[in-house]
């Protein structure tokens, strides 16, 4: 049985109600109806997962924003659901990763029920399937003008200290970086950002000369840091961020946790419904 968690977070009430009607129509059209639980002040996502579990649902579909899905991941607590995602907000990065970037495509994807076992990244008590960033991030650069881009990307580097796979320690002068499990943009190099390979990709960004900033700004926004000059790429399963203490690790601009923190991969942990236009 399908259990849909409908979350109005980040949506105005009229917009949410319109999308809800549209969604129910599509679910009926593609014959993937199931039980629907709406997140309210009194019924949290955690409560709805509990309800789904009690009703014997095997497939849990998050309908809402990227935050809805990420929160659902964090609250699963080892329960064995097949997961799906229907974005109700625009420009959902998870929707793009999973090949379900519109309401129609997402419902069609759920109906096709192509399931991939994908890796799950854990940062402290939080989980993610996309990427987490620190320092100067692509999200920071999305809405800043050219002058601020110059200031950020050619700025002073910080000294980062990281322990990798309990085997070696990295000391790097960097302005930012990312821990990538998967990302919105497909990589030309199939070994990078692949959430089915059992590895994380740690990408470190060096300060750029001013002449290179215009050329590489979009690559940084797309989290394709490996394309920038003097960047580093480390494939690993466990990353212990040691220094600088207090530096935030964020997803799409929202701080998840702060250094010191450990990020590790749990290979093939999630059963995920994916579309044919997924990025991996």
């Amino acid at each position: 049985m399908y259990y849909y968690i409908l979350d109005p977070h980040n949506l105005s009430l009229p917009r949410f109600e319109k999308l809800q009607v549209e969604l129910q129509g599509l679910l009926a059209e593609f014959n993937v109806t199931g039980e629907v639980g709406r997140v309210t002040a009194l019924r949290t996502i955690s409560d709805l997962i509990e309800t789904a579990s009690q009703r014997g649902a095997h497939t849990l579909i998050a309908c809402g924003s990227d935050d809805t899905f990420n929160l659902m991941l964090a609250l699963l607590k080892g329960r064995d659901f097949t997961l799906g995602f229907i974005p109700l907000t625009e420009n959902s990065y998870l929707g793009k990763i999973l090949g379900a970037d519109s309401l129609h495509t997402a419902v069609k994807t759920i109906a096709a029920r192509r399931i991939e076992k994908i890796d799950l990244a854990r940062a402290g008590n939080t989980y993610f399937i996309g990427s987490a960033e620190f320092g100067i991030t692509g999200h920071d650069l999305q809405n800043v003008n050219l002058w601020n881009s110059f200031t950020s990307l050619s700025g002073k580097a910080m000294e980062l200290q990281i322990r990798i796979d309990n085997q070696y320690t990295i000391t790097a002068q960097t302005i930012g970086g990312a821990v990538v499990n998967s990302r919105m943009t497909s990589s030309a190099d199939q070994s990078l950002a692949n959430p089915t390979d059992g590895y994380l990709d740690l990408l470190l960004l060096d300060a750029l000369p001013k002449s290179a900033i215009l050329r590489y700004k979009q690559d940084i926004i797309d989290n394709m840091l490996e394309k920038t000059p003097h960047s580093s790429v480390i494939k690993c399963q466990k990353i212990e961020f040691l220094e600088p203490r207090g530096l935030g690790l964020s997803i799409a601009g929202k701080v998840l946790t702060k250094f010191p923190e450990t990020v590790e991969i749990i290979p093939r942990r999630l059963k995920m419904i994916v579309g044919k236009n997924r990025t991996f």
Partner: peptide, 11 residues
């Protein structure tokens, strides 16, 4: 694996 010019690895 790419170890950039600003990176030092011990181990």
């Amino acid at each position: 694996t790419i170890v950039g010019p600003s990176v030092k690895i011990q181990g």
